[in-house]
Amino acid sequence: MASLMKSSRMAARLVTSATRVARRGYADQMDFTLASGNKVFYTNQNVKQVSSRMAARLVTSATRLARRGYADQMDFTLASGNKVFYTNQNVKQVDVPSFSGAFGILPNHVPTLAILKPGVITVYETEGVSQKIFVSSGTITVNDDSSVQIIAEEAHPVDSLDASAARDVLSKAQSELSSASSETAKAEAQIAVEVAEALVAAAS
């Protein structure tokens, strides 16, 4: 049952990643079917664009998932400039916020590189045990040997955040944004607002 749930979650993720590709495409209509030995992903659905490389990759990753089954391990590392949270630890799932959209990482995720967006990483260690960590920024690397490295400049457990301090930071950043004159100062204030909004959301 658990493995079924997992593969459906996986499939949902594949769909999102395909739609993400699609968003970059053009406005024409398409009648798209994508099926693999173990699962049917789309049947005559209207999508915007599919890169064949992408589709091929989806199929391989789906078959790979099917072949290796449930016993797979994830080699997870989460380190930041202030603390090391995980080193080569096996965890069930990691949800990360990135510039190309939030996504979940399960064992045997398609290899990818991504840039962290300020927000909360959720690490599902074992059944029922999870940890929420707020990251400022950094990189996510998923390699084809199922090792996952997340490196952040600054990361703290969500419990260490102070809700009222976060609100102060947000209002200060907002006022800086409105008073910013140069293009650079505006962008800098905008970044601070973006981070502060994420902080307020996470802390409350």
Binding site: T77, A79, S80, G81, V84, T87, L113, T139, T141, N143, S147, Q149, I150, I151
Partner: peptide, 9 residues
């Protein structure tokens, strides 16, 4: 781990 992670890719 930061060094190892950054050069792993």
């Amino acid at each position: 781990p930061i060094g190892a992670g950054a050069s792993a890719f």
